[in-house]
Amino acid sequence: MTSNSENILEIETIEVVYDGVIAALHDVSLNVPRGSVVALLGGNGAGKSTTLKSISTMLASERGKVVTGKIIYDGFEVKNQRPAEMVSMGLVQVLEGRRCFGHLTVEENIIAGAYSRKLSKAEIGDELEKIYSYFNRLKDLRKKQSGFTSGGEQQMIAVARAMMAKPKMLLLDEPSMGLAPQLVSEVFNIVKKLNQSEGVSILLAEQNTNIALRNADYGYIIETGHVMLHGKADSLLTNDKVKELYLGISKQGRKNFRDVLRQESEQHPDLHMQLGQTENTTSH
């Protein structure tokens, strides 16, 4: 049975197609336990954003469609809902590239995040104070036009704005993108704090494997629309081959991806992979 109250999100072998022809995801399955942080890792075009947009139903606005498989969020099947409906069910996506409302002030951006909630002016004020307690830096910028804030600040605005919707689950798409290392850790610290203090479950898409796994409980690695490898964040993190593949550090030069994974499965039985599938569909 699919509805499992321990998992806030369950994805069962979804296949996603854009424009009716371009297959972006082939057989992605993943679970997000309630209250946890799960990292979704992979390179450019791996299918991370597509996975997140399938969950938030933002996919429809890009002519994408889940053609097979199932997505269960909080016990409900995700099917043909609008993004606004998902938001009122407590699921909010922070889109790749931050996407602040450039002409609105920082505070207006954050308030816009509460659009789906019926709050009085006083309640909005209280909520804002709570948000600013996590995002101290934004409080001083509240009257500034968000288009003129820095990249790191915009990423914080985007997360703060999403938190204003009081989500049970956040989908974060590459929050580290284009940020200096110090800002990346600042953003991740806040995300981790939100997870721990507000209990919000998080599915985090990242190319920055290292920082993502250090802040996650569990990780999935996807390539060309297939889940290649998944396991506890610390076992993935301490795994040399994962580093080799995703940080581009290799002593013996670049190896065939499948060979590396095959070796891994022999050495680390706690990591799971889907090699059979890959061999049939990936051709070089």
């Binding site: 933002m58 993004p83 998902m86 909010v92 409302f101 002409h103 659009y115 704005r161 919707a165």
Partner: peptide, 13 residues
């Protein structure tokens, strides 16, 4: 007006 996609993602219908 600024970003319809982002507006939609935070629940603005």
């Amino acid at each position: 007006a600024d970003d319809a996609g982002a507006a939609s993602s935070i629940g603005i219908p």
